[in-house]
Structures are given as C-alpha cells and as structure tokens.
Design a protein around this nucleic acid. Structure first.
Length: 558
RNA sequence: UGGGCGGUCGCCAAGUGGUAAGGCACCGGGCUUUGGAUCCGGUAUCGAAGGUUCGAAUCCUUCCCGCCCAGCCA
C-alpha cells in the first residue's frame, strides 16, 4: 500500500509502519465535541480519518469528546449520529464517549500525582492567569507547586468528592513555567465544575481538560494516529509529555493538517448560532448553510460531499476553497444522474394558433442525454403553453437566440414555432401573452428546407402543468468575518413544470435545463411540491444575460 | 511583541538542484433539438531581496505577509 505522494499524513504513517513503531493496527478517530451541528469542516476531518484507516486496513473510531458539561447536549449527539448515518461514512472501530472513561482517566491523574508530575493548585482563575505570565514574561511557579504528594492526593480525592467549589482548586501538570510554549506552563489537567453532565448526570464534580482527555482517550482506545487540525500543533508537546509521564507504551502520535474553509461559507459555530437564533435562518438545516443538515436539505448527495472532501485532500496549510470548485464538483455528479425536466420559473402564456384547442400532440423527450439507459418520456403539447418570460423579447438584441416577433425557436423536444405577435399589459407594458404557429414538419427533426434554428426553449402545457414552489438561495454574506444573513438571500418563485415532475419524491433531484439542479425539499407534500435549487448550471441565465447585456452595450456604443 | 506553523496563476495544487503538471475560475473557438454536457486553444517564473551553483521554486541569509498559542473551551 504505497503512500499517496500528495498526502503527507500517509507518508508519515508509512514511516511509522516501516519503523515498526506500533504493534497494533493503524487506528484513527474523529473526536467532535457534541456542542453544535456538524458542517463541511467536520465532514472533511471525518473523511481524512476514515480514509486513512481504510487505506491501512485499520480501525476508525468516533469519539464524542464530552468533557465539558457546560456546553454539551444529547441533542447534538443525536444530530451527529444522524448525520453520520446519512453521510454513510463507516465507523469500522467503535463509537465511544470520552465521559464513559472518566473512571479510567481519574486513575491516570492519580498516578500522575503520585509520581509527582501533577499537583493540586489553589490559585484562582484570575491569579493563575497572572502567574502564568505572557509572551514576554516567564510565568512564576505556583506557590502550591511543591505540595507533598500525599497532600496532593488527598486534595485530589476531596476535589472529586465535591468538597470544593469551581475555581477553588485545579489539578495542574508540573512542566515548565518559563516555556515559550504557553501550553507547557503547568497546564490545567482537571477542573471542578458544578454543571450536570448530559450523560453522566451529577456523578462527577471534576472534569478532565481537553489535553488530558484527548491524549489518554486516544491511548486507551488504541489509536495510533491522532489526526487533528493545525491549531493543535502547539499542544503536541503536551500530548506527548502526558503520555510519556503516564508511561504509555507505543503512545499514539498526533499529526496535524490544515483547516478547510469554503469561500463565502459561514462555518463558525458562533456565527451560525447567531444567525439561527436571531431567526434570520430557518434553522440549522437551512439550505443556505454548509451544515450537513443544510446541505442535505438543499439536495447535495452524501457521497458527493464526502467525495469532494476526499478529493480536496490534506495539506499542512489552511485552505479556503473557492465555492465554485465545490459547485462544479456537485454539477459533475448531478449531470450524470439527474433526469432532465422542463419547467418555467416565470411563466408567460404562449398560444399556438394552428393547434386546435382540443388537440394534443405527443412529443418525446430524453430523460438524460448523457445516459441512454434513462429512457425517454412523452409530453403532451397543447394549444396553450407557458414559456419562460425571459425567453421572449419584443425588441431583442442581435445575438438573442430565443423567441421574438417574427423569429423562430424550437420548443424543446417538440416543434419549431414562429412568433406571430404578442399582447402587452397596457398598464405596465409587460408581455401578457404571445402568439405563434408551429411547423408540423419539425417534430423530432430539423426543418426539411434546411433552415437553422439556433434557440431551444422550455415549455409546459397550460392544461397539464403542475404548480411548484421553487426556492433559490444565494450565499450568505460573510463580510469581515462577521456573518450577516441577508433577507434577500432567498427568493421564492411560483413556477410551473411538466406533469412528470409531480411524481418526484422528497430528496429526488432534477435538472431543469438552463435553470440549474433542483431537489425536492423534505417538507414537500405531493400536490404542493417545494424544490430547492442545489446549484445553477455552469453557464446559466445570469451568464447569458450578462453576455446579452454586453452585446447590447456594444451595439449602443458603436 | 516571545514561540510555533504556513506562503507556487483569481482559488486549490504538483514539483525536494536541471530549466514551472493538473483541476476550478476566466477568455477565445468547434460541435450540439439545453447558449448544458463535450472538444480545441490561451493565461504564473514560484512572498521579497541578496548569496551558493554551469544551473534554484527547490540550498544558505535576511526581510515581508498570513494563521495559531497568554480559557479552570475544544
């Protein structure tokens, strides 16, 4: 199993394997704290860890890092488990909770006290801060640093028994108060907390710190490679110190990778919380969010999200990926699988003057030109149709290939039609209706006389059309690191679609040609379809319109 | 500011002394009953300055920029 040369983590693991550093199989883990909903960043860490385990035929664990009762809730565990199942990322090892290991962790801290590597400190939080010094000032040893082992042990047990109040005492590692690495200036190992733990209830009065729990839980779980993001680099010396002092054999190794961000995506928990709690967003599953639930609701496929993360890969540098890359990745997958359907977002009526009112012509349309196996469907063409308002212009610019008075265009899957006129609303000047005639020689083939028809537009039969609500989402603004949700970042349109769309079920995806990829919202009910736009097509209306605008400007200029 | 980690095209990213892959984006063109898809072509001297070398993105020096660390958060 050769290491991927682009994956520095694999290269490091390969070295460990060759050196025979571990006598147990490779084991990784993902340790989320259940204090919020998962987002793309979590999926990224998840795929890195599970990917490594898979590659080396090892084990991948999920460990809820629930060592702070003040911020954790069962609700978040449940949501995480739900997301995990949906993502389909297999936990080949075990699912554990750090808090279930509190007894074992307590034994370890006792051992550390016994061996003189940890002590009970009576400094209050603000005093501790002062004694720790800062970047320019070395810290000073706590006055309690040289307490006798017996006294430390007694105090530790009384802390556990609940004899002291939060902040009154803490357990600290005895390392180096002058270290330039602040994490080594006698860091807190255990602290007193009075909150009820969502899982342990009031059983514990003292709780291990992140560093303590992380290192020893990894070791206890048999983890070999503890992969985490780069902000923990400066914690690595502490991670190693703890495992060494507690005399763990073949201690796990921490390797850090750069964080992944998406340009334009609000991922930070505090921002998300504010947006959700302020009511600007519908909730944690708002389709504008890059939370797992939001992406799911929007219509992203689970495999697509995980595959994207895997493709992005790891690096030591923090990255901010252009959303366009994600979108293009999503399009690529959708293009191969999403059936094509016709719909109009802003309907305007088109009457075929030479098609009698009671008559219907069956047109045949492929379900997916990329995939012949997807088959075809028949759609009834009637005298009265709806077409996209933007597909018609009374006075079109030169390169407008859609419908205009006297011009011809193809109705997708059906005939070539020629516009014979239109009616406008006298009050607003808006186009109220369009008239046209169809060319009966052009069903399923080009005009026999050889004339070229360049434009193809969508249509739906007025008689058979199904109504749907279409939601278009814009990205949330994230200016200056301060997330502001724009009320305009969502637009809701009453649209019409061809009848086959009525058969779609929640979660189903579809491509409305030229409009984008859409998914049926989970809340959608038959007969009242709600569709979310997943992504636009690469070169859709906005680009088209920009081009036309540019051409009009050119005309005006010359 | 002390320490740590990073800096190759707008965004990702190959490359580890031999004369700058690829993807996304963008621009131009071909094909097309989606102006989609697809196909062809175009776009960087490697944070900066010095130095070592026949030769450097790759080695050395100094400098600049970004991120992380002074929670009894994770």
């Amino acid at each position: 199993m050769p290491a991927d040369p682009n994956n520095f983590i694999e290269i490091e693991i390969e070295k460990d394997l060759e050196a025979g550093r571990f006598s147990r199989p490779v084991c990784t883990r993902f340790p989320p704290e259940p204090n919020g909903y998962w987002h793309l960043g979590h999926v990224f860490a998840l795929t890195i860890n599970s990917g490594i385990a898979e590659k080396y035929r090892g084990l991948f664990n999920l460990r809820f890092d629930d060592t702070n009762p003040a911020s954790e809730r069962q609700e978040f565990v449940d949501a995480a488990l739900e997301d995990l199942a949906w993502l389909g990322i297999p936990v080949t090892g075990k699912i554990v909770y750090a808090s279930d290991f509190f007894p074992g962790l307590f034994e370890i801290v006792e051992r550390l006290v016994l061996s003189g590597h940890a002590y009970v400190c009576d400094l209050a939080p603000d005093e501790l801060k002062e004694w720790r010094g800062d970047y320019h000032t070395p810290g000073r040893p706590s006055p309690y640093r040289e307490r006798a082992v017996e006294e430390n042990l007694d105090l530790l047990r009384r802390m556990r028994a609940g004899e002291f109040q939060p902040g009154e005492k803490s357990v600290r590692a005895k390392i180096d108060m002058t270290s330039p690495n602040m994490n080594l200036r006698d860091p807190i190992l255990y602290r007193i907390m009075s909150e009820e733990h969502y899982r342990q209830g009031g059983k514990w009065r003292i709780y291990p710190s992140y560093d303590f729990a992380q290192s020893f839980n990894d070791a206890l779980d048999g983890v070999t490679h503890s992969l985490c993001s780069s902000e923990f680099i400066s914690h690595r010396p502490l991670y190693e110190w703890l495992l060494e002092k507690a005399e763990f054999k073949e201690p796990p190794r921490q390797i850090e990778f750069g964080k992944l961000a998406i340009e334009g995506a609000v991922l930070g928990k505090r921002h998300l919380r504010r947006l959700v709690e302020s009511g600007v967003l519908g909730g944690w599953d708002d389709p504008r969010l890059f939370t797992v639930k939001g992406m799911r609701r929007r219509g992203f496929a689970a495999e697509t999200i995980a595959d994207f993360c895997r493709q992005v890969g790891v690096s030591k540098a923090d990255r901010t990926i252009d959303v366009k890359s994600l979108e293009q990745f999503v399009r690529q997958r959708l293009n191969a699988s999403a059936p094509r359907r016709m719909a109009v977002l802003k309907p305007v009526k088109l009457v075929l003057e030479n098609l009698p009112a009671g008559e219907e012509v069956l047109a045949r349309a492929e379900n997916n030109p990329e995939d012949a196996a997807a088959g075809a469907r028949e759609i009834a063409l009637t005298r009265e149709l709806f077409i996209e308002a933007d597909d018609f212009m009374i006075d079109p610019p030169k390169k407008f290939f859609r419908l205009a008075p006297g011009k011809e265009v193809r109705l997708r899957g059906a005939f070539v039609v020629k516009c014979t006129g239109c009616e406008t609303d006298p009050a607003t000047g808006a186009v109220a209706g369009i008239r046209a005639t169809y060319d009966p020689e052009t069903l399923g083939r080009n005009p026999p006389d050889g004339r070229k028809i360049r434009g193809v537009i969508h249509w739906v039969s007025a008689r058979h059309a199904v109504d749907l609500e279409v939601r278009l989402y814009d990205r949330l603004a994230n200016e200056g690191g301060d997330a502001a949700a724009d009320a305009n970042s969502i637009s809701i349109l009453r649209a019409k679609a061809e009848p086959s769309v009525a058969q779609m079920r929640p979660g189903d995806r579809v491509q409305f040609e030229r409009l984008g990829y859409f998914a049926v919202d989970p809340d959608s009910r038959p007969g009242a379809l709600v569709l979310n736009r997943i992504v636009t097509l690469k070169d859709s209306w906005s680009a088209m319109q920009a081009r036309e605008a540019g051409q009009s400007a050119d005309r005006a200029g010359s």
